[in-house]
Amino acid sequence: MSLVFSKIASPSLRHHLRRLYSTTPTTSTSGDKIGRIADELLTLSPSELSDFSTLLRLRLGVSLISSSSAVPASVSGSGAEESGEAEKEKEKTVFDVRLDKFDAAAKIKVIKEVRGFTDLGLKEAKELVEKTTVVVKKGLTKEEAEAIAAKLKAVGATVVLE
């Protein structure tokens, strides 16, 4: 088991694992099983470790772990309802402006507005507008997205902020 501990880069994680193994009585079969799992984890590539980490967090119901002392919600006793409420409280900060439809008479005005806030030429802007139900601008702040949406609505377009 000391071979497993020596390959762990984080001193704090090594310390916690040593404490866990020294205070928890285990049978030889469970210790062997844990040792096999640890050995298999050490053979994974960095991308496989990243995938495993993501999968484990999803299965345990843990969001991104910012410190090594974080405990899964199911283990700490707090319910899944609390984590759901925390996610609802987070306000969206990045928006996309999606053009759903526009009046046929206002097509030229919509194309001009799209050209105004993008770096597209006349032909590219026309093709973009004609696609409809298309995202015309991505990754905007709330204020920028609302300003663009208001301009497009003023010329007769139906716009949705995503």
Rank of each mutant, 00 (worst) to 15 (best):
S6R: 14
K7M: 12
A9C: 05
H16C: 08
H16L: 15
L17Q: 04
R19T: 13
R19S: 13
Y21P: 05
Y21G: 14
T23N: 14
T26A: 08
T29D: 08
T29K: 13
T29P: 01
S30F: 07
S30P: 00
D32Q: 13
D32P: 03
I34Q: 09
R36G: 06
I37S: 08
I37L: 14
I37D: 00
A38P: 00
E40C: 01
L41K: 01
L41N: 05
L44R: 04
L44C: 06
S45A: 06
S45Q: 04
P46H: 04
S47T: 11
E48S: 12
D51P: 00
D51E: 08
F52A: 12
F52K: 11
S53W: 05
S53H: 13
T54M: 12
T54V: 14
R57L: 09
R59S: 04
R59I: 02
G61N: 03
L64D: 07
S66M: 14
A70P: 02
V71L: 10
A73C: 10
E81Y: 05
S83E: 05
A86M: 10
A86T: 09
E87Q: 12
E89N: 04
K90D: 04
E91M: 12
E91V: 15
F95T: 01
F95N: 08
D96C: 11
D96S: 15
L99W: 04
K101S: 15
F102H: 14
F102R: 14
D103E: 11
D103K: 15
A104H: 03
A105L: 12
A105F: 06
I108R: 14
I108M: 06
K109R: 15
V110P: 09
V110W: 02
E113K: 13
E113I: 04
V114H: 07
R115P: 07
R115T: 04
G116S: 15
G116F: 01
D119K: 15
D119E: 12
D119I: 04
L120H: 06
G121C: 00
G121A: 01
L122E: 08
K123F: 02
E127F: 03
K131Y: 06
T132N: 14
T133F: 10
V135A: 12
K137H: 12
K137Y: 06
G139M: 08
L140F: 05
L140A: 09
L140D: 03
T141N: 14
K142Y: 11
A147M: 03
I148K: 09
A149K: 14
A157R: 06
A157F: 04
A157N: 03
V159P: 02
V159F: 03
V160D: 02
L161H: 08
E162H: 01
